Simulated assay, not measured.
Amino acid sequence: MPLTPLDIHNKEFSRSFRGYDEDQVNEFLDQVIKDYEALIRENKELQNQALTLQERLDHFSNIEETLSKTIIIAQEAADEVKNNSKKEAQLILKEAEKNADRIINESLGRSRKVALEIEELKKQASIYRTRFRTLLEAQLELLNNEGWQSMQMQIDQQEA
């Protein structure tokens, strides 16, 4: 067990012949007590400072650990957002491709329908031209027919 200033103060030495001067020893012991008390106070202050510094170190270590965890969580969140964005972009792209295919298929269907309608109209126009030509030729034949000329003569005679 370490000495205390009180232990030093209460220390009694036995007396002997031709011993040390008692006053000098007492003065020296008083000086040792003062220095020892000062050292104890300084040691206590240093222990308090060390404790305070250790508490601060622990605090900053906790902050560092929290920041590290936060950075890791932020990185993971950023990676997750990035992956989700890629997936969403792929879904949008697939949807756009599907819509494009649907639009192309609808357009092809319409163009086929229009092509069929055009062909049908061409056939109808051809039939109409043929019928009209036949009608006109029949009418021309009637006009060129002698019966028409004789009928015209009869009308001319009646008018005269």
Rank of each mutant, 00 (worst) to 15 (best):
E119F: 09
S150F: 15
E141R: 15
F132I: 01
L135H: 05
S150D: 12
A115T: 06
F132C: 00
Y128W: 06
I103H: 02
I104R: 12
R131T: 14
E146T: 09
K123I: 09
K122F: 12
I104N: 07
A125H: 11
S126F: 14
S107Y: 10
Y128E: 10
R129P: 01
E120C: 04
R131N: 15
V114P: 00
A115I: 04
I104T: 10
L136E: 05
N145R: 12
I104L: 13
W148M: 13
L108M: 08
L140W: 06
R129Y: 11
E117L: 10
L121T: 01
Q152W: 14
Q139N: 13
R131Y: 07
A100N: 10
Q152T: 08
L121K: 12
G147T: 10
I103R: 03
R110W: 07
S150N: 15
L143M: 05
R102Y: 11
E119S: 15
L108E: 08
Q149Y: 15
L135I: 04
R133Y: 02
Q152K: 14
E117C: 01
K98D: 14
R129F: 13
Q124P: 01
S126W: 07
S126P: 02
I103M: 03
K98H: 11
L143V: 04
R131M: 11
E137A: 08
A100M: 10
I127M: 09
L140G: 01
E117I: 03
G109E: 04
A125P: 00
K122W: 06
I103T: 08
K113F: 13
A138D: 12
A115N: 11
L143I: 06
Y128D: 05
Q149G: 03
V114R: 04
T130Q: 08
I118M: 02
N99F: 06
E141N: 14
L116S: 11
N145W: 13
D101F: 14
I127H: 03
K123Y: 06
F132M: 03
L108V: 10
I103A: 07
G109D: 07
W148A: 03
Q124Y: 03
I118G: 00
R131A: 14
W148Q: 11
E146G: 04
R102V: 05
A138Q: 07
Q152G: 03
T134A: 09
I118W: 00
R112G: 02
S126I: 04
Y128N: 06
G109P: 00
R131Q: 14
Y128K: 08
R110C: 02
N105C: 01
